[in-house]
Simulated scan of single mutants.
Amino acid sequence: MRSIAAIMTAASLISTAAATQAQAQLPPYPAKPIRIIVAYAAGQGTDVATRLLGEQLSRELGQPFVVENKAGAGGILGTELAAQAAGDGYTLTMGTNATHVLNQYLYAKMPFDPEKDFEPVVMVGTFPMVIAAGSGTPYRAVGDVLDAVKRTPGSSDIAMPSTSARLVLEFLKERSGVPLFGIPYKGSGSAMTDVLGGQLAVTIDTPLALRPHLAAGKLRAIGVTSASASSLVPGVKPVAEQGYPGFEFVAWNALYAPKGTPAEITKLLNAAVNKVLARPEVRQRLLELGFEPAGGTPAALGDFAKKERQRWAPIIKAAGIRAD
């Protein structure tokens, strides 16, 4: 009778041979250029960060990663194009908190399902929003603004240059119970002009947009929306530590693949991106672009996006925020 050890050895050899044969049947990847669809215009933060990542991945995996811009409808057009692509690993998209979480609650109709039509690959970078007051105001903390509005409603209108800014405002209203009033703007430019000119006291914007004005002393950062302090705005106290525990809003960029992309491919891409994000020069460049480098597993990205949907869906509905 053959020994148990001999049987186990034989079984192991058979299993290894089968796995090797199955692996040999898989086509090599990547074997041709890969496109990354960016649902925003060239030159914007998401686009620039994606091009940086693409250059690094090209060196890492030996094939060109080509960025294709398809802007429009708040990121819906480009993301729809990615959702319709074949799940073969040769089309990816740089998703954001707008394209893969918020838009489905902001628009009446969506041509794709951000959860069902995509495979999460990896979180690339995150950034908080910053609440900033004009240098001519007396505000040094978020509580100063809230106290002023309590005393004199409408005394401190807040510029909202983006949907993210409005969500931060609505979340702060919900948590504080203070009737804050926001003025919507189409982009940072005009909002910044009015705050710098003293027409409005406060704005909510990205660290990158605010950085030159903070450095020049024209604006004063009084709160950051990340759960803990951010290296993007050193020394600025989180809103969560100013009397509102649990307050958190971060915008983010993450790599996604169309549904059906093989797990072997998403794992390979995940490992490559994590390796790239660990490089000091890449991390430094992302920080300069206004992103805190992230990384992690595909499962972690999927879980994070699911929690984001659970957090923001009721706030958007309660505030009646619409984009169409």
Results as ranks from 00 to 15, higher is better:
155 S>R: 04
235 G>N: 07
196 L>P: 01
140 R>V: 01
237 K>Q: 15
143 G>R: 06
218 K>L: 15
149 V>A: 08
137 T>E: 00
149 V>C: 06
225 T>N: 05
197 G>F: 05
191 A>V: 04
225 T>A: 06
237 K>S: 14
182 G>A: 09
157 D>I: 12
241 E>W: 14
206 T>P: 04
212 P>A: 11
145 V>R: 01
198 G>M: 03
167 L>F: 14
150 K>W: 03
147 D>C: 00
181 F>E: 09
145 V>Q: 01
234 P>V: 06
143 G>M: 11
161 P>E: 10
205 D>R: 12
178 V>T: 12
243 G>F: 05
219 L>A: 05
183 I>R: 15
168 V>D: 03
201 A>C: 03
138 P>G: 13
179 P>W: 08
194 D>I: 04
161 P>G: 09
139 Y>V: 00
187 G>S: 10
154 G>Q: 12
187 G>Q: 09
220 R>I: 10
170 E>C: 05
198 G>D: 07
209 A>R: 04
139 Y>D: 00
179 P>K: 11
175 R>S: 12
176 S>W: 14
137 T>D: 00
222 I>T: 02
150 K>I: 04
144 D>N: 00
165 A>K: 03
230 S>K: 10
172 L>H: 06
231 S>M: 12
221 A>M: 12
183 I>F: 11
170 E>P: 05
191 A>D: 04
158 I>F: 00
146 L>S: 08
194 D>E: 13
190 S>F: 08
224 V>F: 02
232 L>M: 11
183 I>W: 09
208 L>N: 12
147 D>W: 01
220 R>S: 07
168 V>M: 07
177 G>L: 11
191 A>M: 01
154 G>W: 13
177 G>P: 09
236 V>R: 01
197 G>D: 04
241 E>R: 14
224 V>S: 07
191 A>T: 05
157 D>P: 11
158 I>C: 00
146 L>H: 02
205 D>S: 15
144 D>P: 00
203 T>F: 09
245 P>N: 13
162 S>T: 14
199 Q>R: 15
183 I>Q: 11
190 S>C: 01
213 H>P: 03
244 Y>N: 03
150 K>F: 02
200 L>V: 06
151 R>P: 00
229 A>D: 10
141 A>V: 06
202 V>H: 03
212 P>S: 12
164 S>G: 14
174 E>I: 02
157 D>E: 14
236 V>E: 01
162 S>G: 02
229 A>F: 09
246 G>V: 05
166 R>G: 14
189 G>T: 13
164 S>Q: 13
147 D>P: 01
138 P>V: 00
236 V>Q: 02
245 P>I: 13
233 V>C: 09
202 V>E: 00
237 K>C: 12
186 K>N: 10
146 L>I: 06
156 S>A: 15
198 G>I: 10
151 R>M: 06
151 R>D: 14
208 L>E: 13
225 T>L: 10
198 G>S: 01
243 G>K: 03
216 A>V: 03
214 L>N: 02
152 T>S: 15
195 V>L: 06
195 V>Y: 01
201 A>V: 01
139 Y>T: 00
180 L>E: 03
165 A>G: 14
173 K>N: 07
149 V>F: 05
174 E>Q: 15
223 G>Y: 08
174 E>A: 15
166 R>K: 14
158 I>D: 02
157 D>S: 08
233 V>H: 10
193 T>A: 09
182 G>P: 13
136 G>R: 10
